[in-house]
Amino acid sequence: MSAERTDARGALRAAERTGAELRLEGLTVGYGGAPVLRGVDVRVPAGTIVALLGANGAGKTTLLRTVSGLLPAASGRIVFDGVDLAGVSVEDRARAGLAQVPEGRSVVAELTVDENLRLGGLQRFRGRRLTAAVDGIYGMFEPLARRRRAAGHQLSGGERQMLALGRAIIAEPRVLLLDEPSLGLAPRVVAQIMAVLRGLRDERGLTVLLAEQNVTSALAVADHGVVLNLGEVVADRPAEDLRTDSALRHAYLGF
């Protein structure tokens, strides 16, 4: 291991658990053929919510998976709290406070609600503090508290999304990546999830990168909106502009 990498890991560990800035610089990602992302620049300032918008296939999921380290970048940099993440493993990124809720809710079907939450928290807390952290999540999502002994595969779609989100935030991440959390959920549950994100930003200063096709819900909580089209950033505006300027919305988001 190079000295540079050791320093990077040390810097990541020592950091405080408030929101951190995430910056993507000229990120290009390809699965072998034509690149899926081409020179993408995105800045998510600490303590803000940035909505990542775009149609199916625009590259949103690829972008998130590259940031969390599941996919390698062909070129470009991912900078987390001032530290270049090149060469840092998926596990170390997660331990440093980069949490991802993957698409499809990703609840471990064979584990109970309680076990899923403990799994999310145990890299950061042990013993009583872990139990307290789990109880904190139950306080945030009442429906989960009633199902703590249920296995993941017995949960409804809304319960799964709450569990996936609860499991990602239990370890007090610094940056949260969310891939389509509203997919297939009732509007009431979507509103609840967006309210939790807003609360985390306002109270803890959490940084959120929120990939969504549900543009209205995403822009309602976001500070900023980035629109991807065919792997390139075509708009990067304050959420307010995208919400209110119908010409902009029509040009970039098709409605």
């Binding site: 997660a94 799994l119 890299q123 370890a171």
Partner: peptide
């Protein structure tokens, strides 16, 4: 059960 999800949680 879920290696990828586990890695994302720091396991």
């Amino acid at each position: 059960f879920a290696p990828e999800v586990s890695r994302l949680l720091g396991v």
